[in-house]
């Protein structure tokens, strides 16, 4: 591992910490603002600004955001939308990861003719902008009678995630020595047995990365959520936007801040506790 040449020898050391800390403040500022606002009262924010320290802690904001606040006529808070996102993200993450593992296995270890081309095509799906998929999905969901359902969104995220999961798994399995597979075949092991007995036990490192990547992306996804669901079926990102666009009533910044934090919580927690895996996914999927 190489060290970057020391700036200290160029007489620039005094400038390292101020810059690093200044940028840390820049990145933290919005988060600090939201956390503080989630504890401030409506009057306090509207009479001054969103930048300020709470005069008294309004814990009520959090309970309102969770289960009381009205959005588009429904006074349910964001709880049902959080539930929708969870019910959508968990199965979609699991199934798309499993399909990616199978595809990765086939493409890396059963190098049939055309495997490289198929892999290139699937990888191209990583670049494909979501806008190219909107119309086909609209038609497909209508045909399958899945418009405006959470199941429809699950389907979208399973299929839409396969490009990424296949890419991650294939690039990992390609390092499994071919000799291992050959030896297993000599012993009479077949396609499925090799997968179960050799590939699956080797997979936890890449599966963690894939699961974290998929869950974060699906949880944070907005375009499909807002396009293909309405009202009570919306995932939390789409519901937040509805809250945001609710200009008819005076903005409850305190409650909205708590709602934003609640919606961001799952992926933030994953990032804080699984940062290493998050970063690996981010770098491997850098071309998104």
């Amino acid at each position: 591992m190489a060290e970057t040449p020391a700036l200290s020898r160029m007489g620039l050391y005094g400038f390292v910490y101020p810059v690093l800390i200044g940028f840390a403040a820049f990145f933290l500022l919005p988060m600090v603002v939201v956390v503080l606002n989630s504890l401030r009262s409506f009057e306090e924010i509207t009479q001054s600004s969103v930048l300020g320290f709470p005069r008294s802690f309004q814990w009520r904001n959090w309970s309102e955001a969770w289960s009381g606040y009205c959005m588009a006529g429904n006074c349910t808070g964001i709880r049902p939308y959080m539930w929708n996102s969870l019910v959508m993200a968990i199965p979609a993450t699991i199934v798309s990861t499993l399909i990616g593992a199978v595809n990765g296995y086939v493409l890396s270890l059963w190098r049939f003719r055309g495997a490289a081309t198929l892999f290139a095509i699937i990888t191209f799906g990583v670049f494909l902008p979501a806008q190219m998929k909107l119309v086909p999905w609209a038609i497909t969901l209508r045909e399958l009678d899945l418009s405006n359902t959470v199941r429809g969104l699950i389907l979208i995220h399973i299929i839409g995630g396969i490009s990424f999961t296949t890419l991650f798994c294939r690039n990992y399995y390609v390092n499994v020595p071919q000799d291992l597979i050959r030896a297993a075949r000599v012993d009479g092991a077949g396609f499925f047995q090799i997968f179960r007995r050799i590939i699956v036990p080797l997979s936890p490192p890449i599966l963690i990365v894939t699961v974290i990547w998929q869950f974060t992306n699906i949880w944070n996804e907005f375009l499909f959520g807002i396009t293909f669901s309405e009202g009570a079926n919306r995932p939390v990102t789409a519901a937040l936007m509805a809250l945001n666009a609710n200009i008819a009533q005076a903005r409850e910044y305190g409650i909205e801040s708590a709602a934003v934090l609640l919606a961001a919580m799952p992926t933030l927690l994953i990032y804080i506790f699984g940062g290493k895996y998050f970063l690996r996914g981010l770098t491997a999927g850098a071309v998104k």
Partner: peptide
């Protein structure tokens, strides 16, 4: 600290910056 915004949804980022 530098990387945590990548864990957030763009909806969250956009909303919070629209307030600021």
């Amino acid at each position: 600290i530098y990387l945590y915004p990548m864990a957030l949804s763009f909806v969250v980022t956009g909303t919070v910056w629209s307030w600021l």
